[in-house]
Structures are given as structure tokens and as C-alpha cells.
Design a protein around this nucleic acid. Structure first.
Length: 711
RNA sequence: GGGCGGUUAGCUCAGUUGGUUAGAGCGUCUCGUUUACACCGAGAAGGUCACGGGUUCGAAUCCCCUACCGCCCACCA
């Protein structure tokens, strides 16, 4: 047996091995019509930056499944790629420009987009390189990007299809607006932030009776400039006689009606709600029910519009101050209460989201949600852990239409064309004089097509036919609604078939304190640094070891040290076997002979661990699987059996050595070692491959990567 | 406000359907320089399984309550 270096050096081994694998072509599946393939489409990392620990875990898990299936002889495809990540990436590039003292308007749209493409090229290369560093066995020949040529075609085609079916419509309604990013946001792109907040009680006089008032309570007094009604609960006795009367809107002197609506809680605040259909989601709904006039009182810059009288042009927060001052001086401010509450902020830049009226494009969700609920309820698509099925169904049951247009520059432009007053949807330009919409699509519109657009859809490709649907999708719980649900209805809509049968939600990686790992907060740990320190295998094994049933994974670096020590143990056990074998070479089939109790015991233990290990991997119990194989290898194989073989293969050799026992013990050592490497390979591909290459087995496979699996 | 998850050794966590002395890694302590490995071996200490109650012959495990931590969803202005 070829001799191994004295200590395992991951840096020397990893790059060399990875290159050999890549050149071998085994990352690409051999299509075999008789076999059902195993397919995973990578959750495409955003080209916003580098990979974090969550990616390292997510991709280690995928690689474990992929490598195991490949070794089982299944045609196995792991499609890699990246996501253009609309707002997120644009925001990054804007930040970069800002540091250079520039902004996107200085550059102009065309130049700015060029800059974004440069950024994309840089980070895409980094990300794909990082995936290789941790050992991911993706089919790089099928690498995709959500804005590559074919993919862009798929996106436009999807838009057209939805449009033809009547699912896409344009409408003027209230949407989330980020006054800083200057774009609309979907509900899922806003986050909540704790805000101290106050509740201001404001007196609205009755028309024709300056001495009678109705008091309303609001957290956003500046929006009163756009009020078109005051609402009370229909069951609220205090106001029964007043409903239908007119009130005078202070500061503006406009008459507005007092209406009754169930959405008003009579026990909250003053029991009367000022209704601003142009600046609040609830108020919009009330306005729709009562056919109220809609006044847009705050514009896209977060400033008061011309309808705001003397406040016109003021920033929304300045306007608030001014409005309060004026109310105070007019004696209309009854009282102020503290009210800690949540406010919506932009998920990118944390600016207060301004709900406002805007003409945007929407996807009608009712039918799509219905079909998705159906496949979830039937169990055609299953979750691990299973509780996410119910959570998802609940969300779908209450879903609102999806605002898909964004007023940013980076993304897929809507295939919407206008000429004078005419509007047309068309993948290609309809001809001279037609102008394409400047809006781009929500980045998730394209990600939703990932399981089939990566395979060539809308073209009827061989890949699409053979590899769709995918087998499993593995992701973080944070994007179940943003991504998983949308892939399901997109799959059902365009492929008439679910995109995958299983969804595995991997744990979310937190730091030791249980806080989100965030680069900007300085709480992140760079996985590449860990690779540098412990080796890629140790990073993978350490992460997998910590992937138990819990939804959170509090990253413990200790575990990586443990994993690194384990790698060293594997290495040294292999060195020992190598030493014992000398120049022995295994010919023919690997044999195991039970001569002694120790032989019997280790064989039994190996079979038990192999069985359990397979079961655990099938059920996504990675931590359990890692722990068991660790225990077997270290404490059963090394501590006990290897020690025993020091007797069975005595050194120095006695006068009359038991040649048969010696030979068969060598076979046994080789048998357990090789089969252990097979089992370990999906988790720790580099070191196992390196050792496998030295095993003196005649006619063994070119790579452990394609060695036969042990079940 | 609704829903979900967590709380087990000093630290990070296992514990599958309730069943003999509750496990692992790290850390600590004792001993050990043997033909791989000191990133080693042999052994030890260390836990009223968050709190309180209930079901049961038997509960870390099932049920209820409380506390703290975290996540998701949501239009109490």
C-alpha cells in the first residue's frame, strides 16, 4: 500500500483532488432512460456577496445527498447557479458607488447596469469558487444565472403566459413603497422594527358645530392631511347617532363623513379611526368598501403632495412636527400616549416603508394558491420537518395578490409595451414606436422558475424531460413563502407538475450567542476562514454533526476542532492499515473472514452502523448519522479492532506465524477501512478520496466518488 | 395579537414510538512515552433533564400552567 504522509494536510490534498474530480467528468450525470434520476437545483446564492455559514451548511447537506445517490449508481444531477437578487444587488452596488462619491444618477442607467454586471461577474466567480472549495460536486457545465440569456427568455415567457391566462393585471392600489430605494416592495420584502411610537389624540369638529368633536387616535398624524373619512365600529353606541354626519378635517378645512366599519376596534385608542385610504393598508380596504375618495398625500420621495395645503413639499417627518404644532396651537390635540409598536421597514435599507397609491403590476394569487394548497394537503410535496406544511397552507389561505413590478434598474424588464395610450404584453418588441416599460420584475418572479428554467424551459429540452421534476429542495425556513411556495405554483402552472417531492428545511445557523450571523454586525464567521483553519472536510463534518432535529444551529467552533481531530484519526488509522499491509495487495473481491471474536464483533458493528447510517441519511438526520459513524470508526474500529489486529498480525513475526490468520486479518482491515471510507465519503469527500487512492485493491474504481455504495 | 420551536453535565448539544445505572464532543482530574495517531490510550469526577402540577406500575419523553429565549405570520390605527 502506498504510503501516506505523516500528518493529514487538507491544503495539499483538497485542491488537487477537486481538480481531478472536475476533470473526470463524473459531476455530470449519464442519462439513462431506464433509471429515474436524482436531481437537486441549488438554492442560487445571491450575487450580493460571499457565502456565509448558512450556505456552507445548506450546500454540505446537498452534497451529502448528491454524492450518496451518485455512489448508488443513480444518474445524479446537482444544478449550480446564482441569483441576480434585484434590489439587494443594486443596493450593494449603490453603496459601493457612494464610497467612490458617486450615485447611480451620475452614471445613468446604462452605465450603472454595466457596473452591476461587473459586480455580478466578480461575486459569481467568488461564490462558485467557494462552493468548489467546500467540495460541492455540482455539474458546472449546467451552471445558470437568473439573468442569463435563456433564463431571461423563460422569465418573459412566464409573464406572457400569466398574462394570457388573465393572472397578471396592472392596477392602481396601495403598495409598500421604499422612499429611499424608490421602489415598490412586496409584503414579504418588508420587515418589522420595534418603534417607541406615540398615539396622538386629535379632535375633529363636527360640521356646523364647532364645539362638538370626535376624537381620533393616530400614530401618524401627518397622514391626516389625506383623510377622507372617520370610521367607528357599527356596534359602538357612542357614535350611533352621529354616523353619516360630516366632520371638518382640521388644518385643511375639508368636510369628510363619519362612517361605520367593522375593521374599527371600539376599545382601541379613541374608538374612532381616521381613514386615509392613500396612506394605509387598512384604510385602503375601508375606503374600497365605502367608495371613499383617495387622496395621495405623500409622494414617492416621502414628501407631502400638493394636496397637503401649506404642508406641501415637506418631508413626511417634518410635516408630522408641523402638523402637531399647529393642532396644539389650535387646541385640537387632546392628549398623547406612548405606544410602542411595530413599523414596516424596507428589508434592504431599513427605511420606513411608506404605503402609497401606485400603479403596479400584480399576479392574481387565488387560483395559484389553491393549486398549491392542494398538493401540500395531498402530501405530493412534503416538508421535513413536517410542521412547515401547516404553516405554509395557512399562509396560502390568506394570501394577497403579488406585486411583481419594481422601480429599480437591475432585473428583468417587464415585457410590457406602450404606444400612445395602448398597452401590450409581448416577449419581443411589437415594432416601431412601442416603448418598453422601465419597471423590472420582483427578483423572486425569476427564482420561482428555477427548477425548470435551469433545465431549459420554455424549450422542450432533453434535460427538462429527463430531470424534471427535481427530487428534493433544501433551503432555510426564511424563504419558504418567498421561494418554495412560488416554485410550487410556478411548477404546477408551467410544467403541470410539482417541481420536487420533498422540501428539507435545514437549521438556521446562528452564532454562539444565538444571534443571527451577520457580516455587518460583525457576528458572522466566514466559512472559508474555517476551511483554512480546519479543512473543508472538518467544516462539513462539524456542521453536519450539529445538524440535529432543532430548527436553530448555534455554531460551535469546538465542533470543527473535534471534526479536524477526527480527520486526523481517520488518516492515522489508514496509515496503520497501510503499515500492517506492507506490500500486500487485495486481488479480486474484498473478503471478510471471521476467525476471532474480534472479527465477528467488528463485522457485526459495521453492518449495524451502515444500516443505521443509511436510515438516518434517508430521514435527513445528519447529526445522528455523523455521530454514529464517528463512534464506530473511532471507538469500535480504532480503539478495539485495530488494537486487536496488533495480535492477529504480530510484530515482530514469531517463528511459526499463522499465515492464514495474518492474510485474512489484512483482508478484514482493508474491508472495514474501505467500506468506512465509502460511508464517510459523502460527508468528508476529500480525505476519503485521498486515502482511497492509496488502497491496494486490484481493479478498484478510478475514484471513491463513483465507488459502489454500502447499504 | 396569532402560530411554532427551544430550555438536559462548566460549554455546545444528542436522547427515534414513555421502560433497566440520562449520552457525546470540548473542558477538568488521575494514570500511561505500546508497531498509526499526544489531534493518542485507559479511567474518573460532574446532571432534583427551566419551574409547578397532572396522567401512568413507570415521565427528560405524554397533558396543563408559569417563566425566560428565539423564529414565523399579522391591518389594532
Amino acid at each position: 500500500m502506498k504510503e501516506l504522509a505523516k500528518a493529514y494536510n487538507p491544503k495539499e490534498v483538497e485542491e488537487k483532488i477537486y481538480q481531478a474530480w472536475e476533470v473526470s467528468g463524473f459531476f455530470s450525470p449519464k442519462i439513462d432512460e431506464k433509471k429515474k434520476p436524482f436531481v437537486i437545483a441549488i438554492p442560487p446564492p445571491n450575487v450580493t456577496g460571499e457565502l456565509h455559514m448558512g450556505h456552507a451548511l445548506n450546500n454540505s447537506i446537498q452534497d451529502v445527498l448528491i454524492r450518496r445517490k451518485r455512489m448508488q449508481g443513480v444518474p445524479t444531477l446537482w444544478i449550480p447557479g446564482t441569483d441576480h437578487a434585484g434590489i439587494a444587488t443594486q443596493f450593494k452596488v449603490e453603496q459601493k458607488l457612494q464610497k467612490e462619491g458617486l450615485n447611480k444618477f451620475d452614471l445613468g442607467k446604462e452605465k450603472f447596469i454595466e457596473k452591476v454586471w461587473e459586480w455580478k461577474d466578480e461575486f459569481e466567480a467568488t461564490i462558485l469558487g467557494q462552493l468548489k472549495k467546500i467540495g460541492c460536486s455540482c455539474d458546472w457545465s449546467r451552471t445558470r444565472f437568473t439573468m442569463d440569456e435563456g433564463y431571461s427568455k423563460a422569465v418573459l415567457e412566464a409573464f406572457q403566459n400569466y398574462w394570457d391566462k388573465g393572472y397578471i393585471y396592472q392596477g392602481e392600489r396601495i403598495i409598500n413603497w421604499c422612499p429611499s430605494c424608490k421602489t415598490s416592495l412586496s409584503d414579504l420584502e418588508t420587515e418589522y422594527q420595534e418603534d417607541e411610537g406615540h398615539l396622538w389624540y386629535i379632535k375633529y369638529p363636527l360640521a356646523g358645530d364647532k364645539n362638538s368633536f370626535i376624537t381620533v387616535a393616530t400614530t401618524r398624524p401627518e397622514t391626516m392631511l389625506g383623510d377622507t373619512a372617520v370610521a367607528v365600529n357599527p356596534k359602538d353606541d357612542r357614535y350611533t347617532n352621529l354616523v353619516g354626519k360630516m366632520l371638518v378635517l382640521p388644518l385643511i378645512d375639508r368636510e369628510i363623513p363619519l362612517i361605520a366599519d367593522d375593521a374599527v376596534e371600539k376599545d382601541f385608542g379613541a374608538g374612532a379611526l381616521k381613514v386615509t385610504p392613500g396612506s394605509d393598508m387598512v384604510d385602503w380596504d375601508i375606503g374600497q368598501r365605502h367608495k371613499l375618495e383617495v387622496i395621495k398625500i405623500i409622494d414617492e420621495d416621502g414628501k407631502i403632495t400638493k394636496d397637503g395645503g401649506k404642508y406641501a413639499g415637506l418631508d413626511r417627518f417634518e410635516a408630522r412636527k408641523k402638523v402637531l404644532e399647529d393642532l396644539e396651537s389650535q387646541g385640537l390635540l387632546e392628549k398623547i400616549e406612548d405606544l410602542p409598536h411595530n413599523i414596516s421597514v424596507c428589508y434592504r435599507c431599513a427605511t420606513h416603508v411608506e404605503p402609497l397609491i401606485s400603479k403596479q403590476w400584480f399576479v392574481k394569487m387565488s387560483e395559484l394558491a389553491k393549486s398549491t394548497i392542494e398538493v401540500l394537503e395531498k402530501g405530493d410535496v412534503t416538508f421535513t420537518p413536517s410542521n412547515w406544511t401547516k404553516v405554509s397552507i395557512d399562509w396560502l389561505k390568506d394570501i394577497k395578490d403579488w406585486c411583481i413590478s419594481r422601480q429599480i434598474w437591475w432585473g428583468h424588464r417587464l415585457p410590457v409595451w406602450t404606444k400612445d395610450t395602448e398597452t401590450k404584453v409581448s416577449v419581443e418588441s411589437p415594432g416601431d414606436g412601442w416603448v418598453q416599460s422601465e419597471d423590472v420584475l420582483d427578483t423572486w418572479f425569476s427564482s420561482a422558475l428555477w427548477p425548470f428554467a435551469t433545465l431549459g424551459w420554455p424549450e422542450k429540452t432533453k434535460d427538462l424531460e429527463y430531470f424534471y421534476p427535481n427530487s428534493v429542495n433544501i433551503t432555510d425556513r426564511g424563504i419558504i413563502n418567498l421561494w418554495e411556495m412560488r416554485m410550487i405554483f410556478s411548477g404546477l402552472e408551467f410544467m403541470k407538475e410539482i417541481p420536487f417531492k420533498e422540501i428539507y428545511i435545514n437549521p438556521t445557523v446562528f452564532n454562539k450567542e444565538g444571534k443571527r450571523m451577520s457580516k455587518s454586525l460583525g457576528t458572522g464567521i466566514d466559512p472559508l476562514e474555517m476551511v483554512d483553519k480546519y479543512g473543508a472536510d472538518a467544516l462539513r463534518f462539524g456542521l453536519l454533526y450539529q445538524t440535529t432535529g432543532t430548527p436553530d444551529l448555534k455554531f460551535a467552533e469546538d465542533t470543527l476542532q473535534m471534526a479536524k481531530t477526527f480527520m486526523n484519526k481517520i488518516w492515522n488509522a489508514s496509515r496503520f492499515v497501510s503499515m500492517k499491509l506492507g506490500d500486500y495487495e487485495q486481488i479480486g473481491e474484498l473478503k471478510f473472514t471471521e476467525n476471532t471474536e474480534a472479527d465477528k464483533e467488528i463485522k457485526k458493528q459495521f453492518e449495524a452502523v451502515a444500516k443505521s447510517y443509511n436510515e438516518n441519511l434517508e430521514r435527513y438526520r445528519f447529526g445522528q448519522a455523523a455521530e454514529e459513524i464517528y463512534h464506530f470508526f473511532w471507538h469500535q474500529f480504532c480503539d478495539v479492532y485495530i488494537e486487536k489486529t496488533k495480535e492477529q498480525i504480530p510484530y515482530p513475526l514469531p517463528e511459526n506465524p499463522d499465515e492464514k490468520l495474518i492474510k485474512e486479518t489484512k483482508d478484514n482491515l482493508l474491508y472495514i477501512l474501505k467500506n468506512s471510507l465509502v460511508l464517510l465519503h459523502p460527508m468528508i469527500p476529500f480525505i476519503t478520496e485521498e486515502i482511497y487512492q492509496t488502497l491496494p485493491i486490484e481493479g478498484k474504481k478510478e475514484f471513491l466518488m463513483v465507488e459502489e455504495w454500502v447499504s
